[in-house]
Design a protein around this nucleic acid. Structure first.
Lengths: 156, 156
DNA sequence: TGGTGGGCGCAATAAGACTGCGTCAGGCTG
DNA sequence: CAGCCTGACGCAGTCTTATTGCGCCCACCA
């Protein structure tokens, strides 16, 4: 895939869209100093190239009962291919697991889990992780305060 | 704030918008079986209540040179209020730090860092964390594979 | 210096976003 | 039980955006 040459304007478009994914094209055009037509063509080009992967709405975790955030380090009992595949698939199915990474560095898997509160997390820990024969050990890191949380990737 | 009663339709709207934040209101209306007018009114209500916090574009990390992901556990040298505030502020300013949490569980801070590659991460580790007098110890967990990564929170 | 490709703005059309208004169903009150 | 009130829906009309064809211009190449 051609890595797609990005100019100054493309970068500004991407930064704006990372901040406000639903901005009207006309306003987007104003902000970058172009007319709507070429602005839209640029955005479409970025979407089609796959550089813009998708647009999403971000909800308030507190308001929907997902304000309790925990980072979990998981060590599997054996490092087998089937074990890895199974565990990954299991996590993919769990709605409270927002992120699941296979890792290096003394930990097999790393999870970001969102629940309503400690009690609900405890249930997840006991019923899903501890009860899982693939899991040998876990280490839960409870989030007390979110200093920073962004989906916007820095460009250049 | 009234916790805002959500019915079946609201939940469907939220799930759709978490998946596609830029869907046209007319199409959204079709998907939930309403006409565009009340659909738009519901969405506005969810936005104004703060339940929908914002809309964003998600970019492809690989394509913009941010494909190398590391989870970092950071222990500060002293647990002082000023130290915590300073460190949090410093991380907020670093573009490669996507997330920064103050934590319980044997770790003071937890970071999610995105760089181009190992070399760039190493620079961050050495120049930003190791060189920081507030930092006593760090533990880097390199992500090898992303099994799951979503911004969509499960509803009810 | 004429040829060429890429990207821009213009302008017209189609599509979607908004909003005022009348209607209807459910819950509550006299 | 009938009338009242509230909330939410769909209809229509208006206004704003999105989308696309087209001609123009500039930079680069031969």
């Amino acid at each position: 895939m051609a890595s797609l040459q990005l100019d100054e304007t493309d970068i500004r478009l991407l930064n704006i869209l990372q901040r406000d994914g639903r901005i009207a094209n006309t306003e987007l055009a104003d902000e970058v100093g172009l007319t709507p037509a070429p602005t839209l063509r640029r955005v479409r080009r970025l979407e089609e190239a796959g550089l813009i992967r998708r647009y999403v709405a971000l909800l308030d975790p507190e308001m929907i009962g997902r304000g309790f955030l925990v980072m979990v380090r998981v060590t599997l009992s054996g490092q087998t291919k089937a074990g890895f595949e199974t565990f990954g698939e299991q996590m993919r199915r769990r709605p409270e697991v927002l992120e699941c990474y296979l890792c290096l560095g003394g930990t097999d898997y790393f999870l970001k889990v969102a629940t309503r509160d400690l009690m609900e997390y405890q249930r997840f820990l006991v019923d899903v992780l501890a009860a899982n024969p693939l899991v040998q050990h876990t280490d839960s890191i409870l989030v007390v305060k979110q200093e920073k949380q962004t989906t916007a990737l820095p460009l250049e």
